[in-house]
Measured scan of single mutants.
Amino acid sequence: NKFNKELQWATWEILNLPNLNEEQVKAFIDSLRDDPSQSANLLAEAKKLNDAQA
C-alpha cells in the first residue's frame, strides 16, 4: 500500500543521511514506525536536521 512504500522510502533515506548521529536516526525511525502516515513530514524534518548539522 501507499503508506508502506512511503515508509520504506523514508526509512532508507533517513538511514542514508550522513550528518545524523545514531540516536537521531533511531528517533526518526521509531517515529516512522509509530505513525507511518507522517513519513513525508518526518523525512523533511530529518533532512532539515541533516543540513543544519552539515
Rank of each mutant, 00 (worst) to 15 (best):
N1Y: 00
K2L: 06
F3W: 04
F3K: 15
N4S: 05
N4A: 13
N4Y: 14
K5D: 15
K5V: 05
K5G: 14
E6L: 14
E6N: 04
L7E: 08
L7N: 02
L7Y: 05
Q8N: 04
Q8P: 01
Q8T: 05
W9Q: 13
W9M: 13
W9A: 14
W9H: 15
A10K: 03
A10P: 03
A10S: 04
A10Y: 10
W12H: 13
W12A: 14
W12E: 15
W12R: 05
E13Q: 13
E13S: 05
I14S: 01
I14T: 01
I14R: 00
I14A: 01
I14N: 01
L15S: 10
L15D: 04
L15T: 09
L15A: 08
N16M: 11
N16R: 09
N16S: 08
L17A: 01
L17D: 00
P18E: 08
N19V: 02
N19I: 01
L20A: 00
L20P: 00
N21P: 03
E22Y: 13
E22M: 11
E23V: 12
E23W: 09
Q24E: 04
V25H: 05
V25N: 02
K26G: 06
K26F: 06
A27N: 14
A27H: 09
F28Y: 06
F28G: 00
F28L: 04
I29H: 03
I29M: 07
I29K: 02
D30S: 13
D30L: 07
S31F: 07
L32R: 00
L32W: 02
R33F: 15
R33Q: 14
R33W: 15
R33H: 14
R33V: 14
D34M: 13
D34K: 15
D34E: 12
D34R: 10
D34P: 02
D34V: 10
D35K: 07
D35E: 06
D35P: 01
D35I: 04
P36Q: 05
S37D: 05
Q38D: 09
Q38F: 06
Q38Y: 14
S39L: 14
S39K: 05
A40T: 08
A40D: 06
A40E: 10
N41K: 12
N41P: 07
N41L: 09
L43S: 03
L43N: 01
A44I: 11
A44K: 10
A44L: 12
E45Q: 11
E45N: 06
E45A: 11
E45Y: 11
A46H: 00
A46E: 00
K47P: 00
K47H: 10
K47Q: 12
K47N: 11
K48Q: 11
K48F: 09
K48D: 07
L49D: 02
L49P: 00
L49W: 05
L49R: 04
N50S: 09
N50Y: 01
D51W: 09
D51G: 08
D51M: 11
A52S: 08
A52V: 09
A52P: 02
A52Q: 10
Q53G: 04
Q53I: 10
Q53T: 07
Q53S: 08
A54T: 10
A54W: 09
